[in-house]
Design a protein around this nucleic acid. Structure first.
Lengths: 221, 221
DNA sequence: TCCTTCTTTACGGTTTCCCGTAAAAACAGA
DNA sequence: TCTGTTTTTACGGGAAACCGTAAAGAAGGA
């Protein structure tokens, strides 16, 4: 089991539960913070003192308050800590349920475990700790839910731009001008129409409104 | 302080924190469930045994799983329990931050306290317990946050229907037929257009796509 | 009952979107 | 360089959405 773990979690109620779970699991040193910036400072000092944390447990979304923060969310925190301590293990503990976003964590940030805040989350936390301490990764939920995801459409950056502009209220006919101005590759109106048409067709959406709603649910925009 | 409290909270991590907080506050009997239906049964039995709970602490949203539930959320639970035990105190502990919804809880369900899952929620829980045990209500957060809410548009059921149908891909011109078939009052196409136009204008949306995105963010649809 | 007022509906013109086709351009291989 | 293929763009007809106006209908009061 781990000896030294750092917790970054703004909700006090979640924070104490994670602490208690770690203590029960036999973690000897278990520090906690309510802000990302604090967590980073702790990690930095521990590293300088040559007593680095072995594991970081962090939430994804942190609420803003009167304390101005450099690191706004868990992803920022992970990125920064990994810059100074590349091999620290990371467990994300969040209510996020969108598979695309969780996948992204494993892919882009190379996190080691994801536990979703849900009915049996404490049990899951224990299992995840177990797996991590044995050098494994832990991502049980993604696969289960992945079945539900029939939409095997890969959204390109170009797609995201189109969807974003639409969701910001830009007229379809004005998008070519926007694309050209910002140097995005196919800027013709026909290309825009074609791409949107492809997305609608692939995802079974008959109208743009439905497409936007769908992508909002997926957390893509 | 209370002697007998019932907790309904599906997230295990939150559940244990609430329990711990109650124990620290000196509550002697502190039962907990992960499902609304279970909570209701407990309350019913306690009442029949002439040892009713004094306080119910419940979340609002409960995730569905393999166990089919009659009571789908905290509001349902409160309503049903109040039918058999009208004077039980109710504290809602949820992540919900929309003032309109919280206000509704105090207004329609006449709850006694609301504590939002946030940075200092355990402290707030303690304060709320303190206030409740003295016979007071507790709703500190609503007023502060009310400033943040600029979008003072009240969505009617009719609006929700329109937005839902649009987000399901129904053509605008087909909505009148749908409305008439389901007996919704103004069913003319012009009325639909007018209503959508009003929503767009009020919320500063130039297109339906933007409107849908906005409402998705608000969690209305 | 009649009249006023407000809401709902009907209609027409304009804009935007949708979709198919064809021309133009970019690309790749010989 | 030429040729064939793919991608991008341009164009045009038709459908849907947008928006203003006017007619029709419902509701309420004298």
């Amino acid at each position: 089991m781990f000896h030294k773990v750092l917790i970054a979690e703004d909700h006090e109620s979640s924070n104490v539960s994670v602490r208690k779970t770690l203590e029960d699991a036999g973690v000897s040193i278990c520090d906690y913070t309510y802000y990302c910036d604090d967590a980073f400072q702790r990690a930095r000092k521990a590293l300088l003192a040559n007593e680095p944390y072995e594991l970081l447990i962090t939430d994804l979304s942190f609420e803003e308050d009167y304390r101005e923060q450099k690191l706004k969310n868990g992803a920022d925190l992970i990125t920064e800590i990994r810059k100074i301590q590349p091999h620290i293990k990371v467990l994300v503990f969040s209510a996020e349920s969108k598979v695309s976003i969780i996948d992204q964590l494993f892919r882009d940030l190379d996190i080691d475990a994801y536990v979703r805040k849900a009915r049996r989350d404490v049990e899951e936390l224990k299992k995840a700790l177990e797996a991590l301490s044995k050098g494994n990764k832990y991502m049980p939920f993604a696969l289960k839910q992945a079945v539900k995801t029939q939409n095997t459409y890969e959204f390109s950056d170009y797609d995201i731009i189109l969807l974003t502009q639409l969701s910001h209220g830009m007229l379809q006919k004005d998008i070519p001008y926007y694309l050209e101005k910002n140097g995005y590759k196919p800027s013709g109106l026909s290309s825009v129409e074609k791409r949107l048409n492809l997305m609608r067709e692939t995802l079974g959406c008959s109208k743009n409104e439905q497409l936007i709603a769908f992508c909002k649910d997926l957390g893509i925009i």
